[in-house]
Design a protein around this nucleic acid. Structure first.
Lengths: 340, 340
DNA sequence: CTGTTAGCGCATTCAT
DNA sequence: ATGAATGCGCTAACAG
């Protein structure tokens, strides 16, 4: 059917192993025969069959990517394409392929991961989230598959390699940015708190309030369950004292909130200031453009694949973790509080 | 190292071929031995090695996905995650894996595709775009790799299986929607016209104007090159007669335009109406929410993988193509023209 | 430097 | 209904 090393070997009057050595550019082969063999390869239109190589080398040069299930917002969230871009840029430098797992539920994703791993389809895995009650990570630990988590693992923090922002710090910075502008009543709106990232940002937020001697009130902390944005906003602004500023855990979420605020007559930044997290095309295109903590998603992806491939090549390596710095990007969704 | 069929065979007192037959659930094996073998498989923790199977079966049960290079907007565009969701949903039903090609340039993507194909890593490919001067599609034709294009191919239309919307029709509907509201001066803002989809939508737009006896003027048609949004908007509204409505080729692009209009003091929909294409989270979260032609991206993905897998299993099949209907979704970015 | 031999894990003849 | 033998295409000792 297609051309194999045997065909090339015969045509070039060498043995198959010589051809194989030419393929891996072994330094034990003379330049002359290399040239000869390569010439024949071209003439015959030879191309290596990776599957055969995988079978004997036990390395697939493929990494698996596991994401949150599609029912969550991860799909709509530009985080995903951007992190993938970072991952693939690095992977392609080192000639690794990418295999994607998705699924409609946590269970189906888990099953796919199991298949990937047991079927020996991948050399390592990047997990694009860190979540409570997740089965994937424990499975990977048990199976001793090299893996890297993007986000801070909920458990086994010291045995797991992860790449993350310092989300506590990020939350703190977001709040302090507002505090420096004179805000004293600041609310927090977060996504699903099952994800570590949300918890961290909230904790940083809280920390900032307390260390600045501001009153911290539970009524100012809201989490989005499903599509209860409206309820949340209503609750926030139906209190005796209402916030003059909001920290919102993602820019996507923020534009939703922005719209609701707009509907009930609050203007940003005139009536209320907003600081969000993540920088996507939304932050600039929103009206007003959003002041945001840039988490440098591309870098998260890039570094995670770097770590993973290092780990694959050196399984016993020290499980260090990488913190990608966050950068606050000042746009138009905030305003100073005029001291009366 | 890991458990193979031989190990299972030995333990179960059968031959390796019997185990293999149990794996493929052959009807030539008695239920009794099947049960026995499966029991041993569980006990030993056996899992099939797909690579070995691929080597002999010549089917990888993997499909490749080729997208536009990341320098374009495809990455930021929620089209991508959504189409992927459709693809993966179907693929996982039929137990296919997904392998992703990406790259920083057309050239690098092309190389990756070549590697995928020659390295026999995939059974078929879905190409997520249709573009002028593209090298990937001709290569796939030449190599006789089963593939499906999302979007209408620029050439070889009859020999290529594709899944697409009727974008001419969609363009027409968008324009007619505005015409029905009384608009007579309607502009069109499109993405890179190298992509067939943009051409088609523009042509449909033009057709609608002409068949409604409206004056069609070139000054009302603008394409975005790079970041010349501002220039385009300025040009459009510095003419003697300015449009009262715009058709914009994607919702992402639309919110950019929306912002510029906002800056120069035009309000949507009061001063100008907008109809866009694609429905993503943006259409609802934008202020105002965008009236848009929903192209049903998920379906595009779902159908494309369905077609591809059919094609893989029956390479000589008739190359039919699938048109996914578009649906106009009426939101808040348009207004009737008050007849004076 | 190069050839020979053996085998990766599985599916598939051809036997029985 | 099951077993034995062969090979998919490649790499990796071991020779020489």
């Amino acid at each position: 059917m297609s051309v194999t090393i045997k065909d090339v070997a015969k045509e070039a009057n060498v043995s198959p192993s010589t051809v194989s050595r030419v393929l891996s550019d072994s330094d034990k082969i003379s330049e002359k025969t290399k040239r000869k063999v390569r010439k024949v390869m071209n003439e015959l239109g030879y191309h290596i069959n990776y599957n055969a190589r995988v079978l004997v080398q036990k390395s697939t040069k493929t990494i698996g990517i596991v994401m949150k299930h599609s029912a969550t917002h991860s799909w709509h969230n530009p985080f995903f394409p951007e992190v993938l871009r970072g991952i693939s840029t690095y992977c392609h430098k080192l000639d690794y392929s990418i295999s994607l797992t998705t699924g409609e539920s946590e269970e189906s994703i888990y099953k796919e991961v199991v298949k990937m791993v047991h079927g020996k389809r991948i050399d390592g895995i990047i997990v694009l989230y860190s979540k409570k009650d997740d089965k994937v990570v424990p499975f990977l630990i048990e199976q001793q598959v090299p893996f890297v988590v993007i986000g801070k693992p909920m458990e086994h923090t010291n045995e797991i390699m992860y790449v993350d922002n310092d989300n506590v710090q990020a939350g703190k910075e977001a709040a302090e940015f507002l505090i420096d502008l004179g805000h004293e009543e600041i609310g927090f709106i977060g996504d699903n708190p099952d994800f570590q990232v949300i918890q961290d940002r909230m904790n940083g937020f809280k920390e900032a309030l307390l260390s600045n001697d501001l009153f911290y009130r539970d009524e100012y902390i809201k989490y989005v369950d499903d599509n209860n944005n409206r309820k949340i906003v209503t609750e926030l602004f139906n209190q005796e004292i209402t916030p003059t500023a909001l920290v919102i855990s993602s820019d996507i979420q923020a534009i939703g909130i922005l719209k609701l605020l707009h509907e009930i007559g609050y203007r940003v930044p005139d009536d209320i200031s907003i600081v969000t997290f993540n920088k996507t095309f939304i932050t600039e295109l929103s009206i007003p453009s959003l002041t945001t903590v840039n988490t440098q998603t591309y870098q998260l992806g890039y570094e995670s694949s770097r770590c993973l491939i290092e780990l694959i090549n050196e399984p016993e390596m020290f499980k260090r973790s990488v913190i990608i710095p966050t950068v606050i990007e000042v746009n138009d969704s905030h305003q100073k509080v005029l001291k009366v």
